[in-house]
Simulated scan of single mutants.
Amino acid sequence: MSEYQYYEFVAIDRQLTAAEQGELRAVSTRGRISASSFVNDYQWGDLKADPRQWMERYFDAHLYLANWGTRRIALRLPVQLLDPDLAATYCVGHSASSWATDEHVILDLYSRDEDGDEEWWDDEAALASIVPVRAELAAGDNRLLYLAWLLCVQDRELDEDELEPAVPPGLAELSGPLRSLADFLRLDQDLLDTAARASAPLTTKAPSAAALTKWVRRLPEADKDQAIVRLLRGDGTHLRAELLRRYGGGTAPEAVRGGRTVGELLAGAETRWADRQRLAEERKAAEQARREAAAAAAREQRLDALAADPERAWRQVAELIATKKPKEYDAAVALLVDLEALGERDGQRKAFRGRIHQLRQEHARKPSLLDRLERAGLIASAASGATT
């Protein structure tokens, strides 16, 4: 299988200038470049640039896929919307890392699978389904950060006695974009469910118009003027999130202090997995028992019908065999199996064995039929003879 790599970068907060697009074109002559994105895939080569530097200079989101199992998501937020120290608290390994520039904080999330399963993933739609998590994080929803930390736990990058950071609310009810991110990063559902036990319900309540009006009236005039100027200059991408953070009416309630160790979370995930396996086996066994009971009931109905006129069934067997057709042989053998069961049930086993012996003698020159009888356990061994 040939190599395949997919790179996608998106500029969200501002468009790329013509000069910046030219810089990207100098790196890749066949990349699909616009004022808001760079997309390219490689069958044998590779991107002749450092994605980290591109994230620092040009882009707000990046997705990478390789058919040997590597996946990567990088997101960039302004420092006024994401505290670098907070990001570093959760991004603590190779699977999830963060760094800051003068203006931005960048999160870098990795997932690796040596088996490689990228053929099924729709790379063209993946980033679009995930990138809204950036706005959620900007609005104060820290579930993304906790998922990043959990990814480090899953990849065994932390000591088992290390304590978890603060647990944000809503882990048991991820948004669509967060669910897409978790799936993309192959985050183990049992581990996530275990972590969610300590997560409070997500009870978001937007501030009322009256409350916002009252708060805005108390704002200093200089702050109001600055907000309006930013909006008019087109610098209002994150203005709403910043103001809501200042108001104290963000979209998520407070996180709770984490008290579990990495080892406890991993053990809990293993227990959940074992419980799911046990329940699946129990359901499988119950379904098998149901099918067997249904089959037994259906067979009893067939045997009752045969018992009403067994000679008619024997005549039908003879008619089917007389056709000398393989398909009819199969039908005859199936009917004989039911007749054998009827003999066992009604105490006529000896009579049945006698008639089977007679049938075998009559059709000794039909090896195809005899082979079917032997495989059905109706005769001990098939005799050789001429073909039908």
Rank of each mutant, 00 (worst) to 15 (best):
D304P: 00
D161G: 10
D46Q: 03
D102L: 07
L265G: 02
K324D: 07
V79Q: 13
R25S: 08
A286E: 11
H104R: 13
R365E: 15
E221H: 07
D123I: 01
D275R: 14
G385M: 14
E136M: 05
L147V: 01
A148D: 09
R52H: 04
T271S: 07
L231A: 11
L243R: 06
A351L: 02
R272N: 01
E119N: 10
A206C: 00
L191W: 06
K325G: 00
W120Y: 01
Y329E: 07
W314Y: 06
R257Y: 02
E157F: 01
A331S: 14
R14H: 06
Q361R: 13
R72V: 05
P165Y: 04
L342S: 03
W54I: 08
V39C: 05
S37W: 03
R76W: 04
V167A: 03
R143F: 03
Y110R: 14
D123P: 01
A49D: 08
T204H: 13
R349F: 01
G385D: 13
A241T: 14
A61C: 09
A125N: 10
Y58R: 09
T89Y: 00
E270D: 12
H104P: 00
S28V: 07
H238A: 02
G258R: 15
L192G: 09
E264H: 01
D108G: 03
V262D: 08
R291D: 08
T194F: 03
E374S: 05
S95V: 12
K205M: 10
A196M: 00
L158K: 04
D223N: 13
L370P: 03
D123V: 09
D13S: 15
L339N: 09
K327S: 14
N40E: 15
R32A: 13
L339H: 07
E287V: 06
T203N: 12
A148E: 06
D338L: 04
W273C: 12
V10R: 15
A307R: 15
R197S: 09
A100T: 13
L187Y: 04
Q358K: 13
V333C: 05
A182S: 12
L24V: 06
S384D: 10
W120G: 11
L137H: 02
Q21D: 02
A255W: 11
D225E: 15
E282P: 05
R72W: 02
D113S: 12
D159Y: 08
A100Q: 15
P168I: 01
T388H: 11
I228K: 07
R76I: 08
W215C: 06
D223S: 14
R218I: 00
S175L: 04
L185T: 02
S180C: 12
R365L: 07
L16E: 06
